[in-house]
């Protein structure tokens, strides 16, 4: 079965049983705390890190956090916590 079809089926399944899509679809969950902290749970790896931009891979695509004085406060296989002056969070 093609991955796109599999994702579509999983989404239908989650909607039917009223389950959180992030769990069923293995998607990343993004928490934004004001303009100073972003927490991404269930990421698939760090792609690029600089003080102005942090890019992480996720099932739904690339998550890009832009800002200034960015620092990775915590980094593990499941979670990444970014601190600094957050200006934008984009899904690409």
């Amino acid at each position: 079965m093609r991955p796109a079809v599999r994702q579509k089926l999983k989404r239908r399944f989650a909607e039917t049983l009223d389950l959180p899509p992030s769990v069923v679809l293995d998607q990343a969950v993004i928490h934004i705390f004001g303009d100073s902290e972003v927490k991404i749970v269930n990421h698939k790896g760090l792609v690029q890190y600089s003080t102005a931009c942090v890019k992480t891979r996720a099932v739904q695509g690339l998550i890009e956090v832009g800002g200034s004085e960015l620092e990775i406060a915590f980094f593990s296989a499941q979670e990444i916590k970014i601190r600094g002056r957050i200006r934008q969070v984009m899904l690409k």
Binding site: L46, Y49, E71, I72, F74, F75, S76, A77
Partner: peptide
Amino acid sequence: NRASQVGVALFRVER
């Protein structure tokens, strides 16, 4: 990424 995969937790990563 490799470090996190083998279970190493990193704190205050500064560029």
